[in-house]
């Protein structure tokens, strides 16, 4: 029973993720593409819940849907696209075919690698409490954690520099 529920929900979430991604790529209007991206991100969040990682799932929603998608929306508003306008030009069949083939090659390689060399799938995923995740970040993985903070700090400093640079010429 439980296994069936998990399998059905996996199929649903995978369909949501892939369907959203396809919509994001094929939509003619930028905001509709963004909605597709949001659906895809939600599907990924649901998959995280399925592997008993609710903290990662909630962070995915908090950061991607709550912040990144909204920022992309802000960028779209700056492009002065019209609400009824279709931004994408006419599609060229050969190009679609080539892009599809390129995507399939990467997906196929990844799938083959995962199927052949992937670790054995654990029977039941165990949920790790958030305090353990925090302890791991500040214990064995502290170097990576701090490097990420440095990268973020550099990005923030760069953004500030760029913003002031543009303001100067007046």
């Amino acid at each position: 029973m439980r296994e069936l529920v998990v399998q059905v929900s996996f199929a649903l979430y995978a369909a949501l993720t892939l369907g959203g991604a396809v919509w994001a790529v094929t939509a003619k209007s930028l905001v509709r593409a963004l909605l597709g991206l949001t659906l895809s991100l939600m599907g990924v969040a649901a998959l995280y819940v399925l592997i008993a990682a609710p903290l990662v799932a909630l962070m995915q929603i908090l950061i991607y849907v709550g912040a990144v998608v909204v920022l992309i929306f802000f960028a779209i508003m700056l492009t002065r696209a019209q609400a009824e306008q279709e931004e994408a030009g006419a599609r060229d069949a050969g190009r679609t075919l080539r892009a599809g083939a390129a995507g399939l090659v990467v997906a196929g390689l990844l799938a083959a690698a995962c199927l052949r060399h992937g670790p054995k799938i654990a029977g039941t995923a165990v949920e790790v409490p958030p305090s353990d995740i925090g302890a791991a970040f500040l214990g064995p993985y502290v170097l990576g954690f701090e490097v990420i903070s440095v990268v973020l700090f550099a990005a923030m400093a760069g953004a500030v520099v760029l913003a002031f640079e543009r303001r100067k010429p007046r």
């Binding site: 903290l55 909630l58 962070m59 929603i61 908090l62 849907v65 709550g66 909204v70 929306f73 958030p130």
Partner: peptide
Amino acid sequence: NLGLVLILSFAGFNVLALC
């Protein structure tokens, strides 16, 4: 054990809806 994060993350949908 993640109630607070749950509420904060779903609160983000409101902005997207307004957009």
